[in-house]
Design a protein around this nucleic acid. Structure first.
Lengths: 141, 141
DNA sequence: GTGCTTATCGCAACTCGCCGCAATAGCGGC
DNA sequence: GCCGCTATTGCGGCGAGTTGCGATAAGCAC
């Protein structure tokens, strides 16, 4: 964390109270949180924080590589520390259940897109939408 | 279209002027349009149409299987007729360029998710985000 | 054609994420 | 410790999409 502090200053940024609070909230919640959740958590100790400040700090921290975001089906963006292991997400469009899959499962497609289309895909960036086992079996009966 | 008409009535729905206009707009624009575009197009002939009416009709038509939507990297949803051929989308996060890929490219991953995780993935539902050939070569130099 | 039921419409108000702008406050230099 | 530069904040407001509600009008029965 002290390292992040220096890195931010080194790149011309400033370590404000708000930015530190956003980082702390991410560390404590350490599994894809929403910006709203982060804002709510911070508000309890620093009531005047504005949602846009949270969004901007998440973006700034992302630009420096400390934070990443993933898009889930409900149009909500989830944020997490970049230090967490990267993985894919499966989201059921019927019941909303979430499942994680290791990147190795997604890699073959990424490789193919790179070779055949010259496209460097980031398959962890958006959740894969579909039907989970339960919902699939219900809807087919 | 007359068939859609009947199907809607059969399922307890009503074929209103607005619903017909939404369908017509989709048919004319037949390549992922936005709800805003549809609303604008309809407004020229039916000025008092409300955006929420367009959204609700798109949802209703989607529930009946006549329409689908896809999420691109920006946060606007793109809509199209379900009769169009399904395909995947590659969107460059740097320059925004869009590219289409046939479903056959995505199929192997879908198959694997189905077999290993019991998950029926809809890989055409969200665009795959990444870097296109140009942007990738620029950023690596 | 008339009447009735109720799906759908238009409106107003709201949410979530984002942006421009004036005010504030890090932080490096002295 | 104070100063000045400017990154960042909070605020107001915008765009996409959603929701509740009273008014409207499809479509069925007669």
């Amino acid at each position: 964390m002290a390292k992040i502090d220096e890195q931010i200053r080194a790149s011309g940024g400033r370590m404000t109270i708000q930015r530190r609070l956003v980082l702390e909230a991410l560390q404590r919640a350490r599994h894809h949180t929403t910006a709203e959740e982060i804002a709510a958590r911070i508000r309890s100790r620093h009531p005047q924080i504005d949602p846009s400040t949270v969004y901007r700090n998440l973006e700034a921290l992302e630009a420096l590589g400390h934070v990443t975001h993933t898009h889930f089906e409900d149009r909500v963006t989830r944020w997490h520390l970049a230090s967490e292991e990267r993985h894919g997400h499966l989201v059921c469009r019927s019941c909303g259940a979430e499942q994680e899959v290791p990147m190795t499962v997604l890699e073959p497609l990424a490789r193919r897109l790179r070779h055949e289309h010259g496209f460097q895909a980031d398959l962890a960036h958006s959740a894969v939408v579909g039907l989970c086992r339960q919902c699939a079996s219900v809807s087919s009966t």
